[in-house]
Computed example of a mutant assay.
Amino acid sequence: MPDMTHLGLDETALERLGGLWTAREIAQQPQMLRETQALLMARRAEIEAFLAPLLAQPNLRVILTGAGTSAFIGECLAPVLSTRLGRRVEAIPTTDLACAPQLYFEADTPTVLVSFGRSGNSPESVAAVELADRFVKSLHHLVITCNADGALARYGQGARGQTVLLPDATHDRSFAMTSSFSCMTYAALAVFGGIADRDARVSAIAHATQQVIGTHAATMKAVADEGYERVVYLGSHIFQGLARESGLKLLELTNGGLVTMFDSPLGFRHGPKTIVNDKTLVVVFLSNNAYTRGYDIDLIDELRRDRDAARVIAITAQDGVGLPVEDQVRIEGLEDADDADLLFPYIVAPQMFAFYESLRYKLTPDKPNTSGTVNRVVQGVRIHELS
């Protein structure tokens, strides 16, 4: 008989609380990562045939784009993919491309526009692909989306495009993006980093993600019940994008009830640290890279010496952070993994924390915005004509 509980609550209780879809979509991520890899393997030849001649161009530019959470995928991946490909890879949100295309598009630079979209219907995202076609002479579209019926999915099916459609279950029905974020991130990492190479690593990533859900759901609930008034997420390089996504999840699911911010451990000292008081929770994503990790640990040590923060929690795949066991979310099996592999088990702890905070605020996680002014697919955006 299938397990009918998610994040420690049965489906009947979750439905009553208005959080069934959010809990289910957080909990399904290990399986969705496996299914995403299987889908990519099935289409490997087609995807590689599309990208190979483009990546052979030494002056190729790759733009990773999306709106909101979909934009943060680019922030997480751009540094990694740029290094691996030896090409310009930039994260530019569609909300920037749509309002100032003349500042971002380069007419004479061959470009692959990688568009991420859960629904694929955000007005800015549709506008961005249309503007790119107008501004860039040699342009190709790679669309990574969860919705077969979205505008972006159809746009990527043109002669100069390719659409990677993810498993239908990743088209999250809850307000906040969770499994859509992780699976679109994974798909882009695999497509540009080697689909076959990922096949040998997906099991360890999915297992580690499941371990965090199974081991630390109760921990995240207990942390939420402590009643912090401010939450700060910190991460170096690619984890700064993850920190931004984590802060947004908390802001969305508490309907703005919690003050949140994100930064890098090094950047945090330059003013933003003034947010810390005795009602502040600080969460640090630690790098597996020894050099970078040194800076992460320095900041943790400083926060402990200051004694201003109510609590400091490390999300880490390695020990040796100087924090008590109860203040560590330890990731099993990825102690030697590349930091990019850690994106997936790392994000589920903040997602669970945001879910439990939503319940603590007596909101319905599947639809936390009580006024109806913020929607699952953005509304009220007018795209202006560009002469």
Rank of each mutant, 00 (worst) to 15 (best):
residue 6 H to K: 14
residue 7 L to G: 04
residue 7 L to V: 06
residue 9 L to S: 09
residue 11 E to K: 05
residue 17 L to R: 07
residue 24 R to N: 03
residue 25 E to F: 09
residue 29 Q to C: 08
residue 33 L to R: 03
residue 38 A to W: 13
residue 39 L to R: 09
residue 39 L to P: 11
residue 40 L to V: 12
residue 40 L to Y: 06
residue 41 M to F: 15
residue 45 A to Q: 15
residue 47 I to A: 00
residue 48 E to Y: 09
residue 49 A to M: 13
residue 53 P to C: 13
residue 53 P to G: 11
residue 55 L to G: 03
residue 57 Q to L: 14
residue 59 N to T: 10
residue 61 R to G: 00
residue 65 T to W: 01
residue 71 A to M: 04
residue 72 F to C: 10
residue 73 I to Y: 01
residue 73 I to S: 01
residue 75 E to P: 01
residue 76 C to P: 04
residue 81 L to V: 04
residue 89 V to R: 02
residue 92 I to K: 01
residue 94 T to G: 01
residue 94 T to P: 03
residue 96 D to E: 15
residue 96 D to F: 12
residue 98 A to T: 05
residue 106 E to L: 07
residue 111 T to K: 01
residue 111 T to P: 00
residue 117 G to Q: 03
residue 117 G to P: 05
residue 118 R to T: 11
residue 120 G to V: 06
residue 125 S to Y: 05
residue 127 A to N: 00
residue 127 A to D: 08
residue 133 D to A: 15
residue 136 V to D: 01
residue 140 H to M: 09
residue 144 I to K: 01
residue 144 I to P: 02
residue 158 G to D: 05
residue 163 T to G: 02
residue 164 V to R: 06
residue 166 L to Y: 09
residue 176 A to F: 06
residue 183 C to L: 08
residue 184 M to I: 11
residue 187 A to W: 06
residue 191 V to G: 07
residue 193 G to T: 00
residue 197 D to M: 15
residue 201 R to H: 12
residue 205 I to N: 07
residue 206 A to K: 04
residue 212 V to P: 02
residue 213 I to M: 07
residue 217 A to C: 14
residue 218 A to Q: 13
residue 220 M to T: 05
residue 221 K to F: 12
residue 222 A to R: 08
residue 225 D to R: 15
residue 225 D to V: 13
residue 237 H to V: 15
residue 238 I to G: 03
residue 240 Q to L: 14
residue 241 G to I: 01
residue 243 A to E: 01
residue 243 A to L: 02
residue 251 L to H: 14
residue 254 T to K: 07
residue 259 V to R: 10
residue 260 T to S: 05
residue 262 F to N: 03
residue 264 S to G: 12
residue 266 L to A: 15
residue 267 G to T: 11
residue 268 F to M: 13
residue 275 I to L: 05
residue 283 V to A: 10
residue 284 V to H: 11
residue 287 S to W: 04
residue 287 S to T: 05
residue 290 A to K: 10
residue 293 R to T: 02
residue 294 G to Q: 02
residue 295 Y to M: 11
residue 297 I to M: 10
residue 297 I to W: 06
residue 298 D to S: 14
residue 301 D to T: 11
residue 301 D to I: 05
residue 301 D to V: 02
residue 302 E to V: 01
residue 306 D to I: 11
residue 310 A to R: 10
residue 311 R to D: 08
residue 313 I to H: 05
residue 314 A to C: 08
residue 317 A to Q: 00
residue 320 G to S: 10
residue 323 L to K: 08
residue 325 V to N: 12
residue 327 D to G: 09
residue 333 G to V: 00
residue 336 D to Q: 15
residue 336 D to F: 12
residue 342 L to A: 00
residue 345 P to I: 11
residue 356 Y to A: 06
residue 358 S to H: 02
residue 361 Y to S: 13
residue 363 L to I: 06
residue 365 P to C: 06
residue 367 K to N: 13
residue 369 N to F: 03
residue 374 V to Q: 04
residue 378 V to W: 05
residue 382 R to T: 15
